[in-house]
Computed example of a mutant assay.
Amino acid sequence: MPHRVRDTREFAMPCMIGVTSGMAQTPQTPPALFDRALLHARQRRAQAQGAENFLLDRVAEDMFDRLAAVMREFHAPVDLWTPGEGLAALRARLPSLQRIALDETGAETLPLAPDRLDLVVSALALQFVNDLPGVFAQLRRALKPDGLLLAAMIGGDSLTELRQAFAAAEAECEGGVSPRVAPFADLRDIGALLQRAGFALPVTDVDRVVVRYGNAFALMQDLRRMGATNVLIERRRAPSRRATLLRMAEIYAERFADADGRIRATFDIIWLSGWAPHASQQQPLKPGSAKASLAEAVKKAGKE
C-alpha cells in the first residue's frame, strides 16, 4: 500500500446558509453526466477484489461524531447509496438503519414515501448523481418535519492534480483532451441546492485530505479499488495509449511532487446537512421587525 500523510486541517470555515421560505419548483432534469450502471458494476468489482476504504472509513468516523453531537434519538433512519458496508459501524448506534443500495440500473428515483424518515445519511455517493437537485427534493419530501439529512461527498478541488496532468499529457501526445476526472460540485453550489430543495438551516463545510503516493499509477490503483474510476458518459472508450500514461505520470511528478519525490493527491470531502422545516426551529427575523434602527443606535453611542 502507498505511504499516506493525511492533512486533517479544515480548509474552509463552515458555510452558514439562511433558512428558506419554501421548496422551489423542480427544474427540468439536467442531461446525464454519469453512467451509474457502470458505477454499480465497478463498485461491486472493487468490493469483490478488496476495496480501498481509507476515505470512507474517515467519513464514517466523522459521521458518527457529528450525529453524536446532535443528541437526538432517530427511529426511522436510512443510509442512501453508501458504497459497500461503509457505514456498518454506525448501526451500533442506529440498529434500525436501513440501507438503500445503488442498484444495477443506477436509478435515481427513490423508493421513499413522504414524511416517513427522521434521518438520511449518505457517505461518498452523491458526487456521482446526475440530478442532485431532484434527489435533494425527494429526500426533503421523505423526511418528517425536523428530520435531518447528513451526507459527505467528494467535491471542490478533488483530484485537481490528476486532472491537470492528464490534460497536459493528452494535449501534448494526442493533440486533444478527453474528460478523465468527473466535474465536482463546489461548496457554495451544494449549499444553494439544499436551500432550493426546501431544507431549513442548511450548512456545508469541507475536510481537505492530502494523500501522498510513490507515483501516479499507485494513485490510479487506489481509485480502481475505491470503484471510483471514470464513469463519465462522455469518457473516451478506447484504451489510453501507453505513451500518454507515461507522460501523464512524468508531468504529475514534475508539478505535484514533494522534496522526497512522492506526489500529492487532494481529496475535498464536502459535508452537508439540512433539516426538514419545523415550527420549533430558529426562524430569521422578518424585514422591518427590528425594535430599533441602526442609525438611532449609532447616534446614541455617539452621545455617550
Rank of each mutant, 00 (worst) to 15 (best):
Q281P: 06
E10K: 10
R91D: 11
V298L: 13
L162N: 02
R36C: 02
A238N: 09
A238P: 01
S96C: 10
D205Q: 13
V129G: 01
L245R: 10
C15K: 03
A276K: 05
L39W: 02
R140Y: 02
I233W: 05
A69H: 11
R99N: 06
I233P: 03
A243K: 14
R6E: 06
Q28D: 12
A152R: 08
F184S: 01
R45D: 14
M248Q: 02
T204V: 02
P239N: 12
L219M: 13
D35V: 04
L110Q: 08
V121A: 08
R45V: 04
R141S: 13
G175A: 07
I269T: 13
P14S: 12
A89W: 08
L90F: 10
M220A: 13
G50Y: 03
F217Y: 05
R264H: 12
P202V: 03
G156Y: 11
T160Y: 11
L112D: 08
E296Y: 03
P287M: 12
F11G: 13
L219N: 06
G274W: 04
S293V: 09
A137R: 15
R116M: 11
A253V: 04
A292V: 15
T266S: 12
L285D: 13
F256M: 05
E170S: 00
D186F: 00
L272A: 11
E85N: 15
